[in-house]
Design a protein around this nucleic acid. Sequence first.
DNA 1: AGGCTTTTTTTCGAGCCTCAAAAAAATAGT
DNA 2: ACTATTTTTTTGAGGCTCGAAAAAAAGCCT
Lengths: 411, 411
Amino acid sequence: MSVGIRHDDLRRRNRAMVISAVRRAGQPSRTEIAATTGLSHSTISAISADLIQEGILTESKASEPTALKRGRPQIGLALNPEAAAVLTVVLSLNFLSVAVIDYAGQVIAEEQRRLDTLVMPRDELIGECLAIVRRRLQDPDLDVSSVARIAMGIQGITDSHSRAMLWSPITPLTDIPFADILEREFGIPATMENDCNMMAVALRWRDPERYRDNFIAILLSHGIGMGLVLKGELFTGTHSSGGEFGHMIHRPGGALCRCGRRGCVEAYAGNYAIWRSAMGISEDAAPTDVGDADMRALAAKARQEEGPEREAYRRAGEALGFGLGSLFALIDPAPVAMVGVSAAAFDLIEPALREAIAQTAGGQHSNSISFDTEPNELPLIREGCAMRALTFVDQEIFAPGMQARAGKHVA
Amino acid sequence: MSVGIRHDDLRRRNRAMVISAVRRAGQPSRTEIAATTGLSHSTISAISADLIQEGILTESKASEPTALKRGRPQIGLALNPEAAAVLTVVLSLNFLSVAVIDYAGQVIAEEQRRLDTLVMPRDELIGECLAIVRRRLQDPDLDVSSVARIAMGIQGITDSHSRAMLWSPITPLTDIPFADILEREFGIPATMENDCNMMAVALRWRDPERYRDNFIAILLSHGIGMGLVLKGELFTGTHSSGGEFGHMIHRPGGALCRCGRRGCVEAYAGNYAIWRSAMGISEDAAPTDVGDADMRALAAKARQEEGPEREAYRRAGEALGFGLGSLFALIDPAPVAMVGVSAAAFDLIEPALREAIAQTAGGQHSNSISFDTEPNELPLIREGCAMRALTFVDQEIFAPGMQARAGKHVA
DNA sequence: AGGCTTTTTTTCGAGCCTCAAAAAAATAGT
DNA sequence: ACTATTTTTTTGAGGCTCGAAAAAAAGCCT
């Protein structure tokens, strides 16, 4: 149950605190770190001396030559890019991409591949993932021993411990324990993350002003996904990655959803649903894959003139609006980021969405709810995976007492 | 933002740990506490010596004469009932009740009053609350200075900091800062809690086996409310008490809800909605108050024979089922407690509820979702308020270093 | 140039806290 | 009465953080 704080935890946590302050701030001086963490100067000094000695941080002279102030100039502290590296693997529909990222967060290598995820047998899909990772790890420029973590992101449902893919729209396969598979193969700790959760993580790093403690990232693509940050914490279900916004019920017994059930939000707002509706296909028809180009053409048509295309987006907006309204009834309104190809058509969606949300309990302050759009989800997912892996390393490097990861080894 | 751990926090937190272990376990020995907190025996010994000396804990000889084990017998530690007292105030429809509770959780005095909450003007409503509290505090048997906290519970929406009632079905008044009012009047720290959240708190204390880390308490009464515990934490909205399950949208544009909007779950499952439907009154008709006795009669009629009454409960079950399904899509399934007068009619609700939930994403393991019922909400709310107040005191008594609250004062 | 200010960083002693091990206490069994 | 066993308390050592003071590294001023 609840566990007391041991004395040795103290240093461990405060080290984590310092590292995270540096990662957030970029090049803070010791004084700045003391201010943000609330710890004393002497503690910061001691901890940062340790971290520098262990090769985790480096002193980088000029924080900025701006504002030539009096007094001893501050010495900026930065993450040592060579302290470690992490690997991100993003698996999406017919597409696999891998990147190697240094400890400071810079991409130092990447590789991408097309493959037919929908029809690949289990062994082949896993094999492709392992192969692309292996190729990156064999890169002679890379010190394999420095790779401290692999974060894999996938469209679909993962378990709440970020170990396995439970279900995904990109393959008929289910329950693939990718984290275990990667760990067994390469001996590097790994996690399996939900794509929308990673989008949320990335948004917070990209724009901490707007996306701080409470916000929602919604993926408007073939399916509808959501990443939710509440009170500064990534929200996950109790068993799975949770946040299956797309499968909240919009109309009981309504349109057929890709998940096989009826009336889900996604069955009105997913790409296939918009397409189905615009083309006058029955709501009972099985979902079909619609390419991004087709969706863009559809949006263009809808913008051009009134007609079934525009009406389809309107219905999508309505479903999203009522869904958001129900969500807001539970968690209160928060800023929303719309991501994915249909986010580029948000102008077509927004009016109906706002109208719907205004009819719900969550829409009380309907006009204060703000939306932002980002048409391209893949870079976000990769960034999120990278930050996930890096912050894990931040809290791993210091954890087991004094185990040095880079630089000279330590007493 | 994130703040480092100061050295002095350590003792503070571990004291809290020990107190909370005693509150949970009843009469644990020092050894047991050491085991549950993970702290060393010497630390527990030191802390409990302090707490006993300060009059917060007492040694109570026989933990139990059961299992006469070898060795030095354990000495049970218990909360000293006289260490402090708290006051609970529960305001519900036409009813106000107050209780004084000792530090060990026993009710030592109470008082109840009927009043017309729906028509009382602001000053009068506040005045009644203050008056009843004042009477209790003037009780000559009570040492006023020992009253360390007031927790007030109310049906309706409170702010996320538990300071004010924002909106409530029991009065047309809004935005009453009860916590501030009580604090100003009596100089005792106070909070204003949402009733369903308190139900959840109470359920966890009553049955920690079943209601531990993830569960849902749903109030089926005039309105529909929810208290949610996720990952061991009481879930609240970002601004308000949140968890307005009753105002998730069941049917866009559907039946008229008490909140003035349309299609909310409550507009199908609240007492007034069941009544309206059973009586063949239009869904557009304004909600009316239905007495508990009438509801019990309605349920009896529905059990007796097929007819509009039974159908009304069926529709309520459907609304609750789809609502729960949407909720479970977000948070994954969890045990549910149904509380309130209509929980006594859960037999009429359950079949349709389960049928509906099975049609949703959250219903994947529909049969593993378990329901429990508890017809009487008031005792639960009071218990929850009491535990809320007491655990606050637990974390207040030790906080400012060594400020003694009871017993001899301390160096 | 040289001394003075200002600001940052390091150093040092003090005070706590926790831990592990040893000692003390209390009881059951022999 | 004595030993074994278990729980509780005591004691000494080691660490951590803090505050104050010292040291360091500039720019400013005469």
